[in-house]
Design a protein around this nucleic acid. Structure first.
Lengths: 298, 298
DNA sequence: CTCGGTGATAACCAACGGCTATGACCATGG
DNA sequence: CCATGGTCATAGCCGTTGGTTATCACCGAG
């Protein structure tokens, strides 16, 4: 049953306590004198105590007013500090660029190169890298976790995003070394139609379809061997023989370790890797600069 | 241009930050969920910063929210302390009785006797004595400085006050020992009509008239030798020969020092000394108890 | 005795803060 | 696969609040 208070009322109270004069306090506060009087009376009513004694000789603090004054100042100071903290947080946010990615972009020091180029142009800005789960095909753009992101096209809701393509790479087939098809140097996609595939989570939407090469399958739906949402998981699934999967050439090194290999595939198109951002952020200087640095690097 | 805030909004913010759940926070705060949502959004708009991130996975604090939270708690704590301080001041006031007087009541330890009797009945209460200037005939009752007061009747605005008579004393004439009239053991007031008198300040109103014995003067206005507003001042004015004045028998000792003496006067009535209080305070236990103690002592 | 200056009051009006009802979205389970 | 229950957001409504201007009652000073 604790009574709330408006900071404004405390400001008013402190002003009157300092001036000991309603009219002067009112003009210092840029309000009319009646408004000030009314608010002070309201505060007094709320507290159930007279704060000022008004008589012929002027305005004076009562005992209760005397008691309240230092606390009122403290409240105001605390709030000012709070507002300042929020302001600082906003500034920090403004000068921080969060870069999302699903797996490491790798590709021969691409990231450090962009970063150094970017930092040259914006030395005050700190760049934070953030690895996002595979079940978000936008790598954090969608929920605002991230300002820019390295993603695989296509994106869902394409009109909400803009991007610049970083690389166009053929899709290889990743499969266990022990797999019969691993004997061939190159594989026809038609031979894979009955093969169980590892798939991205449902939530990946169009991207899931892309890595299943849905457009290269005549009507028949793919068989799903397992769902994967990370590089380690993919490797383990491959070794376990749960299925095969397509993988971008640039990502091949991430999973071609003991027991897993990759082969070229005929009959499917390449994949495009891109740096993307939300369309509404297209004007933000940091976002533009990072995209610029990215284009210059590629 | 610092923005004010309502403590309620901070309470709401803290609740949501603790629950990370609008609906639960809302019911903890005994408001509807839309009201809570709206207030939080208003706070965010006011600060120009998102405080919470709402997405499918629930509600989470943003950087700005994280920054604000401790300050918000501080503000609330400071306000709570302030409200408590006011409460304490009220309690202190309730248990303090301020007794006003113009000059010391004296009269053979009257004050200590009342005090000890009163304190016996109300050991928790502290009694504060306050000497008031002579230009307020109510000794502080009028402007609320004082709860009860020893005053000389009559009071202005009689219906606003109640009192119990402490003493009824003849009025003596105080005059310099060197004054011709000082030779007589007793003086007729008729012989004083042309004598310059020391008078209370104008603001004393009816009381000023009383000590000039206006009702014993047939039409002719008194000559005013000087205005006095304290015992010392009166003594000095008498010694300086600025005039003579009436004084209650009980107060005679205050000014009959070297060079000043008093004489009985024929033709004027006595004065009544009383303990008075504001009529509206007639029900206050402390006031009643003090009046009671006073009556028992007299 | 008027006059300038005090704080309080009245009447009015826009904005705020609460409510209920409803919507959009998502996870869950028959 | 749809229905359901739960999330938070939105819409529309209404009493209260906080501001305004105009005015009053009061007092001290010239």
């Amino acid at each position: 049953m604790t009574m709330d208070v408006h900071a404004r009322d405390l400001r008013y109270f402190v002003a009157v306590a300092e001036e000991l004069h309603f009219t002067r306090a009112a003009e210092r506060l840029y309000v009319s004198q009646p408004a000030l009087s009314k608010q002070i009376r309201a505060l007094e009513r709320q507290l159930g105590a007279e704060l000022f004694r008004r008589d012929r000789h002027g305005v004076a603090l009562t005992g209760a007013g005397e008691a309240l004054l230092p606390h009122a100042r403290r409240v105001l100071a605390a709030w000012e500090a709070g507002a300042a903290a929020v302001e600082a947080a906003k500034a920090a946010e403004r000068s921080t660029l969060v870069v999302g990615m699903s797996t490491s972009p790798g590709r021969g020091g691409l990231l450090p190169a962009i970063r150094s180029r970017f930092t040259a142009a914006h030395p005050e800005t700190t760049v934070r890298l953030r690895q996002m789960s595979w079940d978000d095909p936008t790598a954090g753009l969608a929920d605002g976790t991230v300002d820019v992101a390295f993603v695989w096209l296509p994106l869902p809701d394409e009109e909400r995003y803009a991007w610049t393509v970083v690389a166009e790479e053929p899709r290889l087939l990743a499969l266990p070394e022990a797999h019969p098809l691993a004997a061939r140097p190159e594989i026809d996609f038609a031979d894979l139609l009955d093969e169980p595939f590892l798939a991205l989570p449902k939530s990946a939407g169009r991207l899931r379809d892309h890595w299943l090469a849905l457009d290269a399958r005549p009507g028949r739906p793919p068989r799903i061997g397992a769902e994967i949402s990370g590089a380690e998981e993919t490797y383990e699934a491959l070794v376990a023989g749960l299925g095969v999967c397509l993988v971008a050439e640039g990502n091949a090194p991430l999973i071609t370790r003991g027991g897993v290999t990759t082969r070229r595939v005929r009959g499917i198109g390449p994949s495009r890797y891109a740096l993307a951002w939300r369309s509404e952020d297209g004007h933000r200087p940091l976002v533009r600069a990072y995209a610029q640095a990215c284009r210059e690097t590629v």
